[in-house]
Design a protein around this nucleic acid. Sequence first.
DNA 1: TAAAGTAGTTACCTTTGCGTAACTATCAAT
DNA 2: ATTGATAGTTACGCAAAGGTAACTACTTTA
Lengths: 99, 99
Amino acid sequence: MQRSMGILGTRWKPIIIYTLRDRKARFGQLDALIENISRKVLTSSLKELEEDGIILREVFKELPPRVEYTLTEKGKALIPIMCQLAKWNEEYYAEEIAL
Amino acid sequence: MQRSMGILGTRWKPIIIYTLRDRKARFGQLDALIENISRKVLTSSLKELEEDGIILREVFKELPPRVEYTLTEKGKALIPIMCQLAKWNEEYYAEEIAL
DNA sequence: TAAAGTAGTTACCTTTGCGTAACTATCAAT
DNA sequence: ATTGATAGTTACGCAAAGGTAACTACTTTA
């Protein structure tokens, strides 16, 4: 568990993984899809997630350049977990505003 | 998802929740069960988790004083998620050391 | 030659997370 | 009066996480 949290225990990384659950995405797309994230944090988070074998970074030598990010198998294995987390939040947030 | 991560997106909070998955525990027990955590972080994490409605803090007016921490319903709903996370880690860590 | 698009990087700064060590409070038992 | 047990708190500081704004590099198109 401590190892998991060493990899995922930040505010943004799980959100990045969740965003990639059903699509590949380019840097600019991630920047647009994830509200409030800064390009700097996005850059460093993507780099670390790649180092940890969770996402794959593919560079296409085109013009203008294109870089696509996708989940690896290890990363895809996290999708159900992230979805449950999103569901958990919806459930209990709905409960709170109902009070 | 951003709200979830605002609550859980740290290195230690998920570990605390995971530790409480099958037992109530006292402050000193948590301190002993969770390796490497400092009392200070434990204190502040417990306080924040209580504010977010994930754990319950019960004070027993005994001598010496006793304080027990348990998961609320909202917190218990996270147990399967935490267990999956632990499982995810074991799976892929086993894979890595096999290489 | 200048704009426009993609994918970042860099510098600088603030906030948060986390650690260590020492200290507090309460009461009982010795 | 000192020790022991529980459950913290406080002071101090470092490092990591995160934010903003400006800048780079490359090449096509106008």
